[in-house]
Simulated scan of single mutants.
Amino acid sequence: MKKPTYLLFALALTMAACQLSSKKQTLNELKQNIAADFEANTGDYAIAFKDLSNPDNQLYINETETFHAASTMKTPVMIELFKQARAGEFSLSDSILVVNEFKSIVDSSAYTMDIGEDSGEGLYSFIGQKLTIYDLTYEMITVSSNLATNILIELVGAPNVMTTMKSFGANDIQVLRGVEDQKAYELGMNNTTTAKDLAIVMEMIATDKAGAPEDCSAMIKILKDQRFNDIIPAYLPNSVSVAHKTGSITKLHHDSGIVYLPDGRKYVLVLLSKNLNTMEEGTEVLARVSEKVYSYLNQ
């Protein structure tokens, strides 16, 4: 007995749908999809993605374009702190005075930080008191304290941070100064980065090459406590953990991190933006790109 024509048609549609649904997105298709997202939105964007469990999975767009680093430069500062502590220059448990007076790299003139411009405002209540270097490092990363950052940069020295980054092969990261050095800003003396170099930095931490394995583990633990989670982790399942550092100033929003999947795989993802129409728009674009990278890896 012959099947009715409409049943055969429905069967054909079902089979076609199954074939389409079983077709996995290629890495090139993912790249084209992300490039279209970047093109469709106001601003300039960059991505660096590397699957540490499968080196063939790498994706880069505008990865060598220079961006103001904003607070992403605090990760290199953290690395230098652990490096110097390992070398015996100090202990992370040593106490250090919390101050709010710093020297411009232009002419050594004094300047102070504005609590209204700092997301780590809680630290200002400790001015004149002592906290451990570790506590200041934790504040610098997790709540992006600018005050803690400046204290710590003066401790380790920005040139030393640069030397360490170059030893990693991250040659385009510029950590020249602390935060809110207005004289330096007006002369264009800014901290800058590229997506490629931040990816190198995160991979070095993830693979225990940014320092002793126990130091890298400690840095990852701090990065996992990041309080600003509206880009890389925003649309990922709760079972996924992210060790990351964000950065934002006017019309600019970044995120850079290591993503840990429940099955043991991990990948590095860096998402940068500048010249945004609104912070909300740029943040949403990058958060959705992070979601697409995750979905690609979990097809």
Results as ranks from 00 to 15, higher is better:
residue 262 P to V: 03
residue 40 A to R: 12
residue 260 Y to E: 09
residue 294 Y to N: 04
residue 66 T to D: 01
residue 253 H to D: 06
residue 133 I to N: 06
residue 166 K to L: 06
residue 9 F to D: 13
residue 144 S to L: 06
residue 29 E to Y: 07
residue 112 T to S: 13
residue 148 A to L: 01
residue 275 N to K: 12
residue 202 M to D: 04
residue 148 A to E: 00
residue 164 T to H: 11
residue 158 A to M: 05
residue 36 A to T: 11
residue 232 I to E: 12
residue 40 A to S: 15
residue 105 I to N: 04
residue 191 N to D: 02
residue 65 E to F: 11
residue 142 T to H: 05
residue 215 D to H: 13
residue 140 M to F: 01
residue 199 A to D: 08
residue 254 H to K: 07
residue 152 L to M: 13
residue 210 A to L: 04
residue 75 T to H: 05
residue 31 K to I: 03
residue 111 Y to S: 15
residue 171 N to R: 07
residue 259 V to P: 01
residue 221 K to I: 01
residue 125 S to R: 15
residue 57 N to D: 14
residue 143 V to P: 08
residue 227 R to S: 06
residue 214 E to A: 15
residue 19 Q to R: 12
residue 121 E to H: 10
residue 71 S to P: 09
residue 141 I to N: 01
residue 298 N to A: 11
residue 37 D to P: 01
residue 49 F to I: 05
residue 295 S to W: 06
residue 286 L to Q: 15
residue 168 F to M: 02
residue 11 L to G: 14
residue 288 R to L: 13
residue 117 E to T: 01
residue 261 L to Q: 01
residue 152 L to F: 12
residue 105 I to W: 07
residue 253 H to Q: 14
residue 94 D to K: 10
residue 95 S to G: 10
residue 209 K to D: 12
residue 83 K to P: 01
residue 21 S to A: 15
residue 142 T to Y: 08
residue 17 A to E: 09
residue 54 N to F: 07
residue 251 K to S: 15
residue 232 I to D: 09
residue 296 Y to H: 08
residue 131 L to C: 10
residue 103 K to T: 06
residue 157 G to V: 02
residue 230 D to W: 14
residue 250 T to V: 11
residue 63 E to F: 03
residue 295 S to H: 12
residue 250 T to I: 09
residue 217 S to H: 09
residue 238 N to E: 15
residue 101 E to L: 05
residue 215 D to Q: 11
residue 192 T to C: 12
residue 274 K to I: 01
residue 239 S to M: 08
residue 252 L to W: 08
residue 299 Q to I: 06
residue 30 L to F: 08
residue 175 V to R: 03
residue 238 N to H: 10
residue 291 E to H: 05
residue 229 N to Y: 04
residue 103 K to F: 03
residue 200 I to M: 09
residue 133 I to V: 15
residue 89 E to R: 14
residue 119 S to I: 09
residue 163 T to H: 12
residue 232 I to N: 08
residue 245 K to Q: 11
residue 230 D to L: 07
residue 263 D to M: 12
residue 101 E to I: 08
residue 65 E to P: 02
residue 209 K to S: 15
residue 52 L to V: 07
residue 171 N to G: 12
residue 20 L to W: 11
